[in-house]
Nucleic acid binder design. Structure first.
Length: 275
DNA sequence: AAGAATGTTACATG
DNA sequence: ACATGTAACATTCT
C-alpha cells in the first residue's frame, strides 16, 4: 500500500519524534521471515548498540543509516506500518519486529500480511542499486523520461509500476498520473509524442506532490490500510480522480470511470479521455 | 463465503 | 533478449 508519498510521510514522521542520535538497545524478532538478509539472531546482534544517524527514503524503502556504517532498509510492501510505543507497551500479534530505544520507547513494525521485509545492508547497492530514478528528483526531467520510455515497448501501466524503470510509484498514483496525462494504461511506451511524454512527466510529479501534501492516501477504514506513525491517516483519498471510483463520472468529461485488470492489477480509467 | 486487496519476485510462456 | 502471464507470500476486508 505505501507508495512514495506514504513512505515519505512515514519518514518525515519518524524524523520528527527524536529518534536521530538515539541508540537501539535491544531488538526482538517475532516473525523470522521478516528479516531478509540474515538469521534473526545475527540481525539482532548486529543492530544492538547502534546509533541512528539519519532516516531517509529511496523508492518505497525506509532507510535507517546506522552509526557503524550499515543501512537498515525496510520495505513495507502492502501492510507494513511503524508505531512508536511508550515503555511497557504490549505489542499486538501483528507486531513482528521491535527496536527498543535508549530512552525507553520502542519502534514497532506492524504488518498484518507479513510481506514487509528488513534488510541490513553493508553494501546498499546490492538491494537499492536496481531501482530506477526518483521521480521528484531535480534531474528527473521529461527528457530523461523520454529516453527511458523509448528504450522499451511496454504497456504504460506495468512499465510505471516497474521499480527498476522509476522508483516509488504504485497502483494508486500510476492510475492517477495516467488519467491526468490523458494516457491509456495499455498504450505502448514507444508510441508517445514528445508532448505526451512531457504531460506524463508533469502528471507523475503533480500526483506525487499532491499525495505528499495530504500526508498520503488512506482508503476505507480497515486496518489493512496505510497509516503513518500514531495511526495517522492520510487525506489524499478525497483528491483521487479515478482510483477506486469505478462508475463515478470522470471529473473531466463525465463519462463513467471503468475498472480493468492489467498485469493482475486493478486499473481505473476514463475510456473517453485517455488514449 | 468466494474473491480481491494499495507490492514484489521467481519462474514460465510466447 | 524481451514482453507478458502466473503463482506465491499471509491475512483481512468486502
Amino acid at each position: 500500500m505505501p507508495e512514495l508519498p506514504e513512505v515519505q510521510t512515514i519518514v518525515d514522521d519518524l524524523n520528527a519524534i527524536g529518534l536521530i542520535g538515539r541508540s537501539i538497545v535491544q531488538v526482538e524478532v517475532f516473525w523470522p521471515a521478516a528479516i531478509a538478509t540474515s538469521p534473526p539472531a545475527v540481525f539482532c546482534r548486529r543492530i544492538r548498540g547502534q546509533t541512528i544517524e539519519s532516516i531517509g527514503r529511496r523508492g518505497k524503502f525506509v532507510l535507517f543509516r546506522l552509526h557503524s556504517g550499515p543501512i537498515l532498509a525496510v520495505h513495507l510492501r502492502m501492510t507494513g506500518r511503524f508505531q512508536m510505543a511508550a515503555k511497557g507497551g504490549h505489542p499486538c500479534r501483528h507486531v513482528h519486529v521491535v527496536l527498543k530505544i535508549d530512552d525507553g520507547r520502542s519502534l514497532w513494525f506492524h504488518d498484518t500480511r507479513k510481506f514487509g521485509r528488513f534488510y541490513l545492508l553493508d553494501h546498499p547497492q546490492a538491494v537499492l542499486g536496481s531501482l530506477g530514478p526518483e521521480p521528484l528528483a531535480p534531474h528527473f526531467t521529461a527528457e530523461l523520461l523520454a529516453g527511458r520510455m523509448a528504450r522499451q515497448r511496454r504497456q504504460l501501466k506495468p512499465l510505471l509500476l516497474d521499480q527498476t524503470f522509476m522508483a516509488g510509484l504504485g497502483n494508486i498514483y500510476v492510475d492517477e498520473a495516467l488519467w491526468a496525462a490523458r494516457l491509456h494504461p495499455l498504450r505502448r511506451s514507444d508510441t508517445l509524442s514528445a508532448g505526451q511524454i512531457r504531460a506524463l512527466h508533469g502528471a507523475i510529479r503533480r500526483v506525487l506532490r499532491q499525495g505528499l501534501k495530504h500526508a498520503g492516501t488512506t482508503l476505507g477504514k480497515g486496518q489493512s490500510n496505510f497509516y503513518s506513525l500514531g495511526d495517522a491517516r492520510g487525506g489524499n483519498d478525497a483528491h483521487l480522480k479515478v482510483f477506486r471510483r469505478t462508475g463515478e463520472a470522470c471529473p473531466r468529461c463525465r463519462s463513467p470511470i471503468v475498472r480493468i485488470v492489467v498485469g493482475q492489477r486493478s486499473t481505473h480509467l476514463c475510456e473517453r479521455c485517455q488514449t
